[in-house]
C-alpha cells in the first residue's frame, strides 16, 4: 500500500543523506531556497565574505549550482560538472546526449542526475561522473525542482513517486521545450514521467 514518507523537511534529507544542503534548485523540494542549518554565513559575518575561487565551464552560461557530499555541480549549455568545494578544481564533467539547453543537475544521495533536451537522462556517480543508470525515454526530462514544488514522496513497491505542483507551460513555446517531468527520486525500478504540455504520462521500468 501507499506509504507517505514525504514531508518537505524529510524530503531534503532523503535527497541528500548525510547533511548536505541544496541538492536541487531552490534548495529542496519545496523550493524555499532557505538553508536553515547554515551557521557560518550570517548577518554578523557577511561583510567579511570574499570570493574563494572561480571555476570555468566549457560552454556558456552556468545554471543553478547544487551540492552533493562530493562537491558542487552545475550545468552549462552542453555538460554537467562537478567541482571540489574547497578549491574549485574540476572533478569531472559529463555531456548528456542531445543537450541543447542547460542540463540542470540535481542530486539524490550519491547520484547526480542530468538530462539533455531530447536525450536520455542519466544518473551519475557523484564522485566519479561515471554513468550509473540511463533512463531511456523520448521526452525531455528536467530535473526535480526545475519547475515543480514537491509536496512529498510516496513509496510503492519498486518505485517512489512524488506529489507535485507546477506552473503551466509557457504560452507559445514548443512542446519539447515546455515539457517537464517528475521522476522517482529514491532507489527503485519504476519511474513515472509526465509532460504537462501534453498531459501524457508514462511509467518506465528498468
Amino acid at each position: 500500500m501507499w506509504r507517505i514518507v514525504g514531508r518537505v523537511g524529510c524530503g531534503v534529507a532523503l535527497l541528500c543523506l548525510g547533511g548536505c544542503w541544496w541538492p536541487v534548485p531552490g534548495g529542496g523540494p519545496g523550493r524555499q531556497a532557505n538553508n536553515a542549518a547554515e551557521d557560518q554565513i550570517t548577518a554578523a559575518s557577511v561583510a567579511g565574505i570574499e570570493e574563494l575561487w572561480s571555476a570555468p565551464t566549457d560552454d556558456g552560461a552556468v545554471g543553478d549550482p547544487v551540492t552533493s557530499l562530493r562537491g558542487v555541480h552545475v550545468g552549462d549549455a552542453t555538460s554537467v560538472y562537478a567541482f571540489a568545494d574547497h578549491d574549485g578544481s574540476r572533478l569531472w564533467s559529463y555531456a548528456p546526449d542531445g543537450a541543447g539547453s542547460t542540463p540542470q543537475p540535481f542530486v539524490t544521495g550519491e547520484e547526480v542526475w542530468a538530462g539533455g533536451a531530447g536525450g536520455p537522462t542519466v544518473a551519475l556517480d557523484a564522485s566519479t561522473g561515471a554513468v550509473v543508470r540511463t533512463i531511456v525515454g523520448d521526452q525531455t526530462l528536467l530535473g526535480l525542482g526545475e519547475s515543480y514544488a514537491v509536496f512529498g514522496y510516496r513509496i510503492v513497491p519498486g518505485a517512489a513517486m512524488v506529489d507535485g505542483l507546477t506552473a503551466p507551460p509557457r504560452p507559445g513555446c514548443a512542446a519539447a521545450a515546455c515539457s517537464s517531468a517528475l521522476m522517482k527520486i529514491l532507489p527503485g525500478r519504476c519511474r513515472w514521467e509526465t509532460t504537462p504540455s501534453s498531459m501524457l504520462a508514462s511509467v518506465w521500468c528498468n
Binding site: 534548485p25 531556497a33 547554515e38 554565513i41 570574499e50 570570493e51 556558456g60 552556468v62 552545475v74 568545494d85
Partner: peptide, 27 residues
Amino acid sequence: ITGAPAINNGQLYIGTADGRLIAYGIP
C-alpha cells in the same frame, strides 16, 4: 548572474553568463 545563489557549509555559490561557477565564503 544566471545560476541562482546556493548556500552550503559556509560557502555561497553562483553561476554566471560567461561560464563561471564562483564560490564565496569567509577566507
